[in-house]
């Protein structure tokens, strides 16, 4: 089983459209996972059935037992996050502000404070419209995506892929360059970076590739909307050449991507022309690259 992670650095480049197309084309050979839990959108295209769901806990929050609390105020004084205000003569914890450091719990003279596991969302194992398995999650408000949740979603997807003897796990990676994307990349066999030729798109491509290099993962790149700025597209192509990143495909600016999305479809179900052909070729190429690259390790 090989693990393919699709990332982008910047949002809105078409990462999820690409991942869902690969998930659709891969069909029963793949398990898909949505690690972009901040903006988990892939379910809108893959139509999973949310068959199995489980609570997800991450981190802790302080809780004050009002029965035991003597209102001495030591916790509030020690809290560096101003998370323990006095409301109606009671010290209470503002959950959104609590960082879970546990300092208050340790100093409370009457043991009135307990650190409780925080339920930050749910995660699901589903069957999609193409009858493959999808692992995904939904975060609650103010909950932070973390390496932990990404690792959970990804590991679950990988375990299922291994158990079902699938060829690939196709993973929609997290955006940005922080901890979640690090976690999505960790252990990957191949990564596809989806970018666009804008000043910010190129800037973020370079930043996210720094991470990919650190992990020594072979990478390919898809340039979306390549024709909105030929000059930057040329720069991206040079960058790919210099860094030994495989250029997988360039897609034109085309509203069919959005039309497909509006109908809850991947581009390969909607378009019958160039876009579909390019996407099908991209998937074929990615599969070849993943398998070929591993012969060299």
């Amino acid at each position: 089983m090989k693990e393919i992670v699709i990332i982008s650095g910047k949002g809105g480049t078409g990462k999820t459209s690409v991942t869902a197309s690969f998930g659709f084309l891969g069909g029963k050979d793949v398990v898909v996972a949505d690690c972009d839990v901040d903006a988990a959108d892939m379910h809108l295209l893959m139509k999973p059935d949310f068959a199995q769901s489980e609570d997800f806990y991450s981190g802790v929050v302080a809780e004050i037992n009002p029965e035991k609390c003597t209102q001495c105020g030591l916790c509030a004084e020690k809290c560096r996050f101003d998370a323990i205000p006095v409301i109606n003569n009671q010290h209470v914890v503002k959950k959104l502000d609590c960082e879970g450091c546990g300092y208050c719990e340790k100093v409370c003279p009457v043991d009135a404070i307990t650190m409780r596991d925080q339920n930050v969302g749910d995660w699901y194992i589903s069957t999609t419209k193409v009858d493959n398995t999808m692992v995904h999650a939904k975060l609650g408000i103010g909950a932070e995506n973390s390496g932990k949740l990404v690792a959970k979603v990804k590991n679950e997807a990988k375990a299922i892929a291994e158990k079902q003897h699938k060829e690939f796990a196709v993973i929609d990676g997290s955006p940005g360059v922080g901890c979640p994307v690090v976690s999505s990349l960790s252990g990957a066999d191949f990564t596809v970076i989806v970018t666009e030729p804008s000043v910010s798109g190129f800037h973020d491509l370079k930043r996210v590739f720094e991470l990919v290099k650190k992990f020594k993962i072979n990478a390919g790149c898809i340039i979306n909307k390549y024709d909105i700025n030929q000059e930057i597209t040329d720069k991206i192509m040079n960058f790919l050449r210099d860094e030994n990143i495989e250029h997988i495909a360039s897609f034109p600016y085309d509203e069919n991507f959005t039309r497909a999305m509006t109908l809850g479809k991947t581009i390969v179900e909607f378009d019958e022309g160039e876009l579909k052909e390019k996407m099908v070729n991209s998937w074929t190429k990615v599969k070849q690259l993943v398998n070929h690259e591993n012969l060299n390790v």
């Binding site: 991450s58 981190g59 973390s146 390496g147 932990k148 949740l149 690792a151 959970k152 590991n155 901890c179």
Partner: peptide
């Protein structure tokens, strides 16, 4: 270690 959000 799965239970740790950070610092694994």
């Amino acid at each position: 270690i799965e239970n740790e959000a950070h610092g694994a």
